[in-house]
Amino acid sequence: MTPDKKRAREAAQVVLEEFGIKRIPVPVERIIKSKNIMLEYAPLDEELSGMAYTQDGISIIGINALHHPNRQRFSAAHELGHHVLHAAEINETVHVSKGLRALKRDPVSSQGSDPLEIDANTFASELLMPEKFLLEEIGPDGLDMEDETSVEKLAKRFRVSVAAMKFRLGGLI
């Protein structure tokens, strides 16, 4: 299986359209709850960001309550990505995301090379930082990626980490 970033971005755009999202920050919790997915916050081991599974017809997302709120938002969007993109893979099996890069605890997934994880991260990036909203915020003059203050302000507007914003902006260039 290979990652399908195009499919992941398109799926996130469908969710944005489905919920009529017209501005930032994207209300990821409201989207999850509106999709009848239980969203639970609980203290987890530091390296665990979240989990996604469906059991007996009940869809659940668990998020590490000990992480920074911006990381929790990204984890929630990432786990939503698993529900949207990988329903068969998470049915009756708990999938744990470790450091936002792992669906399963193994050497391949911890390196961020697991196709399911790449898809879920791509989905989360597009959902929380939609390309059209980013381009509107950046404006016609663009953004100097070396200007930390500008990147921090942009990350704050989208309620994501600076690292997530830099990664997302790097994918647009």
Rank of each mutant, 00 (worst) to 15 (best):
residue 2 T to E: 15
residue 2 T to S: 09
residue 7 R to V: 03
residue 7 R to N: 05
residue 9 R to Y: 02
residue 10 E to I: 04
residue 11 A to T: 01
residue 13 Q to S: 03
residue 16 L to W: 10
residue 19 F to I: 05
residue 22 K to Y: 03
residue 26 V to L: 05
residue 28 V to N: 10
residue 28 V to H: 11
residue 29 E to L: 10
residue 36 N to P: 00
residue 38 M to F: 04
residue 40 E to A: 03
residue 40 E to S: 02
residue 43 P to F: 13
residue 45 D to L: 14
residue 47 E to S: 04
residue 48 L to C: 01
residue 49 S to W: 07
residue 51 M to N: 04
residue 55 Q to K: 12
residue 60 I to G: 01
residue 61 I to W: 12
residue 63 I to W: 09
residue 63 I to R: 08
residue 64 N to D: 10
residue 64 N to E: 10
residue 66 L to K: 14
residue 70 N to Y: 15
residue 72 Q to D: 07
residue 76 A to N: 01
residue 77 A to C: 04
residue 77 A to V: 02
residue 81 G to W: 08
residue 82 H to N: 06
residue 83 H to N: 08
residue 84 V to A: 03
residue 85 L to H: 08
residue 86 H to Y: 12
residue 86 H to M: 06
residue 86 H to W: 12
residue 91 N to Q: 14
residue 93 T to W: 14
residue 94 V to K: 14
residue 95 H to V: 08
residue 97 S to Q: 12
residue 99 G to M: 11
residue 99 G to C: 02
residue 102 A to F: 01
residue 107 P to T: 10
residue 114 D to L: 10
residue 118 I to K: 09
residue 118 I to P: 00
residue 125 S to Q: 14
residue 125 S to L: 12
residue 127 L to E: 04
residue 128 L to N: 00
residue 130 P to N: 13
residue 132 K to S: 07
residue 133 F to R: 09
residue 135 L to W: 10
residue 139 G to A: 10
residue 141 D to W: 05
residue 141 D to M: 09
residue 143 L to S: 05
residue 144 D to W: 03
residue 146 E to T: 03
residue 147 D to S: 06
residue 149 T to Y: 13
residue 149 T to Q: 14
residue 150 S to H: 06
residue 152 E to H: 05
residue 153 K to F: 06
residue 153 K to Q: 12
residue 154 L to V: 01
residue 156 K to V: 01
residue 159 R to F: 07
residue 160 V to F: 13
residue 160 V to I: 13
residue 165 M to Y: 10
residue 166 K to P: 00
residue 166 K to V: 00
residue 166 K to I: 04
residue 168 R to W: 06
residue 169 L to I: 12
residue 170 G to W: 13
residue 170 G to P: 00
residue 172 L to M: 15
residue 173 I to S: 06
